[in-house]
Nucleic acid binder design. Structure first.
Lengths: 243, 243
DNA sequence: CGTGGGGTTGACAACCTTCAATAACTGTGG
DNA sequence: CCACAGTTATTGAAGGTTGTCAACCCCACG
């Protein structure tokens, strides 16, 4: 695992709680098995037993559920630095699928390895537990977003969130970051049709809120964006970052 | 804590994994501090530090988030036998509120007590962890429900879920159970207006799917209900119960 | 007997979806 | 270097599901 990628991970975890060299070492050692995954590949399938814990080192992935008629709801983004599926480790079968949105490199821990790591390093266990709690919190906020906000507010809210999450691991440059999603994928995330996502993004571009273009997100007016979204970063538990 | 109430809790946890007498005893002892809460009282508030873990012994409660304009999204139901907020134990502040929907009796564990319990009884820790993972799974399914399904499917899906969850702790009688929610509360849950909830329930009554009336839910045609909902109980991880 | 909360119903409006057509872009092979 | 195919983005028009507003009923409760 190269140092920059490990940096995203550590930076994120240490946002919660300091780690000593031994803990850092143990975590990195456990995550030493890397795997590259193609873009748009489903690498964890609903109804199959969980295959362990993994960390996203590079690239974007998502959790999603399919409906019988082919509709899809994306229920979470997995960004660089995210550690995934500690919670599902004990479940018999996955209740959702996970797929890449771009090429991804991930580090894997077999279930037994993960359990051993948690047993031997209580503070590491706490931090990972915390990271899971934050993901839960994000899921709840997404439900509010989809349930209560208009297309404009909803889109603005998601863009605020993604930007802050990327910023917290050092993946933004000024007011810009990558966001390599098609409008159809944004639609599956926001529970909007791709057409309406397009209209909404066009409107945001015209009104100088954001420019999302060729996989690159630029916040033209951060404050106004947060304002139309009604964005309150509290739920990200970032301990510091404001909008 | 009376035995029937403890029964709901144990029945639910043992659905995941057997417990020995010592574990059962330790859990019940830790949960010995009972508290009665009035109907429609907000007993855990957003932005305040978590006050420990609690178990719902009797009555209905919900997690929710408020928007600046007063709209509300209920993001989860807490039913008898549910153990709550292990996940948030480590967070600095709550990212949502919890309120009762009926009078509730709950058992409380102070944070330190909860941590001690988990440390001393690994298998108990696993079961509680599992219960948390199931709650996460339910949250994701709710997001799918709100995002992708029509009002009719959405309502049917929720009713299927509540019925099964109550059935799993022995709180149903034949095809009926209590469901003491106003239509406005159902609306906040399903992200529908109270008026449209009413229309939908009227429709379901006319077509002999369910009768929801005076706080009592009766499934008139369980199979048809599951069918219109596109309900697949897999996400509840009940290990047995089907619809 | 009045009051207030919840349920029920109708009319109308709004937001968003769907369908359809076109334009821009990406990668591939000749 | 260009032609081509496939995907993604953009825009218009029409229609549908759901929200809002308003009225009315019913019932429990004081």
């Amino acid at each position: 695992m190269n140092l920059e990628q490990a940096g995203h991970l550590l930076r994120r975890l240490e946002g919660f709680c300091g780690l000593d060299d031994e803990e850092r070492g143990a975590l990195l050692a456990a995550l030493s098995m890397e795997r590259r995954i193609d873009s748009h590949a489903c690498f964890i399938e609903e109804r199959r037993p969980p295959e362990g814990v993994f960390a996203i080192l590079e690239g974007f992935a998502c959790r999603y559920k399919l409906l019988p008629d082919g509709r899809r709801q994306i229920v979470g983004f997995l960004l660089p630095g995210d550690i995934c599926d500690l919670g599902t480790l004990l479940l018999r079968r996955m209740d959702h699928s996970i797929a890449t949105l771009t090429p991804v490199t991930a580090a894997w821990l077999a279930p037994v390895t993960a359990m051993a790591l948690l047993d031997r390093h209580p503070r590491l266990a706490r931090v990972l537990w915390l990271a899971g709690a934050v993901e839960e919190s994000i899921t709840r906020e997404w439900m509010v977003n989809i349930g209560q906000r208009t297309a404009l507010q909803r889109t603005a809210h998601l863009l605020c969130e993604v930007f802050l999450r990327l910023e917290s691991v050092g993946l933004t440059h000024g007011n810009a970051c990558v966001l390599p999603l098609t409008q159809a994928e944004l639609g599956d995330t926001l529970a909007l049709s791709a057409v309406h996502v397009n209209r909404t993004l066009m409107y945001m571009r015209r009104t100088n809120l954001v420019d999302l273009h060729a996989g690159r997100l630029q916040l033209l007016d951060r404050h106004a964006l947060a304002s139309v979204a009604g964005f309150d970063p509290c739920y990200l538990h970032l301990c510091g970052g404001a909008m």
